[in-house]
Design a protein around this nucleic acid. Sequence first.
DNA 1: TAAGATTGAGCCGTCAATCTTT
DNA 2: AAAGATTGACGGCTCAATCTTA
Lengths: 151, 151
Amino acid sequence: MAMPLPIPSNATITAWARLIRAHNIVFAAVEGELKAAGFPPLAWYDVLLELRRSGGSLRPLEVERHLLLAQHNVSRLVDRLEKARFVKRLPVEGDARAQIIAITDEGRDLLTRMWPAYAAAIQKHVGDRLDSEIDATQLSHLLARLTQSEK
Amino acid sequence: MAMPLPIPSNATITAWARLIRAHNIVFAAVEGELKAAGFPPLAWYDVLLELRRSGGSLRPLEVERHLLLAQHNVSRLVDRLEKARFVKRLPVEGDARAQIIAITDEGRDLLTRMWPAYAAAIQKHVGDRLDSEIDATQLSHLLARLTQSEK
DNA sequence: TAAGATTGAGCCGTCAATCTTT
DNA sequence: AAAGATTGACGGCTCAATCTTA
């Protein structure tokens, strides 16, 4: 008699373990290089980039949706960004509960200054480790599957 | 004239972004299910599993090496595990600086009780989202490349 | 009551400094 | 001085509770 296949399969368990490990190693390496160059955490870059992409400002709820952060995390992250002068909180006409988070000139400048170091780190820790564009595309494709909703 | 290719390539940048996003989504989903079932963080499971795999005990430095944790993190993690009775710290003969971290019966029991829920979560959030064993193997292979040393 | 956002308490990770033993 | 490990201070995340306005 054949042995029943384990659920999850060994291939699935290995994929899980390597996803966690690859992320931890690559993320720490990239963020570590930026930190060594005197830059703030990548979470700051992510928020500022979303703001710039969206024309300069977003509502907190939109930041939460784009970056998959909880409401209170955005609140605290914006606290730090505002204290560092990279964003400003603006009131919303007609709804005193709401606010708009707007990137400042200093925030745009930080994005500009960070990108060369960030790009170099991505190339070093991701691009240089894959043999070809085809591999990068294939990896992206498989990772995208993990974040799609159930079949 | 052809445009120069950006470095890193768009494919590389996409692979980086999806690695981060896939990890965040899948990890939060798996750990969230375990937490909802009343279990401790995955980091606890990782340490206990390494101890069991190694015959029941390890030196802190070996835990650091296996799990890619800093010395002080292991120290604090073991504090919590010891307080929860899942491990014990034992002295080392002949070197009063050193210690041995040993899994307890309660620790082994936790591993046993967690695995069914953990396995189900991995299947749901990884296995079920890949079309085949071949995909899981291919993904593992590409992720492994990211953690190999420079060519 | 609900929506939008913040707050306080506590947990966890990180940095630099420290302690003890070799 | 170096090795093994811990500690204090603090940054950042998470939970539940809260505050304000709609």
